[in-house]
Design a protein around this nucleic acid. Structure first.
Length: 374
DNA sequence: AAGACATAATGGCTTACCTCA
DNA sequence: CATGAGGTAAGCCATTATGTC
């Protein structure tokens, strides 16, 4: 049994990435709400998209790779990803991650003394460090310094930016990024990691992007990072955590939904037991009352519903089965936003009790649109 | 000041893909 | 050409750590 429910717009999960092409779509996006639907169970695996650009980025988790293979990988990366060739424009929000203390000019001196992590706004540094003329080329390297490794990474960045090597290739930038990551790891034994607090604008921007696509390709990651003046790794982590939050909320929704299903079925079970007892009692008191002709009850093979040809039987069925229909209708009207709230509806992926024939109080043609021949 | 909560960040694991012998 | 090993990168998950209320 598979329950396919989605938090948020399920459709976007399988939607092709569109934020680079048309950011305006975001404006008329519905708010991120809950929706239950069948399609969601199939999480869109971004690999299909990402694999095409897979080697385009590397901002973490290659810390222990040897330099030879890393260099080769970087060569491949530099061939596949070019942060300068795509005029990516994200117009979702104004790009205003203005440093809070901008007048404190790039005080690299602070980094030099290896003691800059305290009191330094991790939100600030990329904006301070970015030089417009080369922001495109160096965004990856630029934004690669983990905030918790400010000392070492800033020294690294300082070296990059203070040196004459303005024409450093992406390979070198990636290597620097890698080095920064390593430095961040090595930094663990020293100072505690500094937690970044995203600004409202940054969060909103990321949220809007997440609505469009809950996973990122390397290009998208870089574009977002550039737009928000964050490190790609930070964008990546944000999306990862965001997916985790979505999943958690979805799990809660699923639990609630299954609870309601359980309650509904329990109630139906209780009612059927009661009905059975009544029928048994009736049969005991009047053994001939319930003896129906064998041909009276027929089951539709397609819908598994019992159609009655005898009016008396139909009437008898009606009196006993009405609560079910009422309960089902109630459940549907209260929960159904996308025609998926019926606990036994196939659209939800749930097939509770679908294998047993169900009695419905209505005449068959009333509930079943198609005509039956015999 | 302490605790609860939200969330950024980390490390381990899995999976898919690529390269090469 | 097919195949298995090794490497790489990305995502998920559990967890930690930190900032905020």
């Amino acid at each position: 049994m598979e329950l396919g429910l989605s938090l948020g717009d399920a459709a976007t999960a399988s939607k092709p990435f569109g934020f680079m092409e048309k950011s305006t779509k975001l404006t008329n996006k519905a708010s991120l709400g809950f929706c239950m639907g069948l399609s969601i169970g199939q999480n869109h695996t971004p690999r299909e998209d990402e694999d095409k650009e897979k080697h385009g980025n590397n901002d973490h988790k290659s810390d222990n790779t040897n330099t030879t293979t890393t260099a080769e990988a970087n060569k491949r990366k530099s061939l596949t990803v070019d942060t300068t060739d795509s005029p990516i424009q994200l117009d979702l929000l104004p790009n205003t991650p203005v440093p809070r203390n901008r007048n404190s000019s790039p005080t690299y001196v602070v980094y030099d003394n290896g003691n800059m992590s305290r009191g330094f706004d991790v939100n600030r540094f990329p904006a301070v460090m970015v030089h417009e003329d080369q922001a495109d080329q160096d965004v990856a390297a630029l934004s690669s310094s983990p905030p918790n490794s400010a000392t070492s990474s800033f020294q690294m960045d300082f070296c990059m930016y203070s040196s004459k090597g303005r024409s450093e290739s992406h390979n070198e930038a990636d290597q620097a990024e890698r080095a920064s990551s390593r430095a961040s790891d090595e930094d663990e034994n020293g100072s505690a990691r500094k937690k970044l607090r995203l600004s409202k604008d940054q969060s909103a921007f990321l949220e809007e992007s997440f609505k469009e696509h809950n996973t990122l390709t390397p290009k998208q990651k870089l574009a977002l990072a550039k737009e928000l003046n964050l490190r790609p790794r930070q964008v990546e982590v944000w999306f990862q955590n965001r997916r985790a939050r979505t999943k958690l909320k979805q799990t809660e929704v699923d639990c609630e939904y299954l609870k309601r299903c359980c309650e509904t079925l329990t109630e139906e079970n209780r009612r059927l037991h009661k009905e059975l007892q009544e029928l048994r009692a009736l049969k005991t008191s009047n053994p001939f009352y319930m003896q129906l002709p064998a041909t009276t009850l027929t089951m539709c093979p397609s819908c598994e519903r019992v159609a009655t040809t005898s009016t008396s039987t139909a009437a008898a069925t009606t009196t006993t089965a009405t609560p079910t229909a009422t309960a089902a209708t109630t459940t549907t009207t209260t929960n159904n936003q996308n025609n998926t709230a019926d606990p036994t509806s196939k659209t939800t992926g749930l097939s509770l009790g679908s294998t047993r024939p169900r009695f419905y109080p209505f005449s068959h043609t009333q509930t079943h649109p198609h005509q039956h021949t015999a």
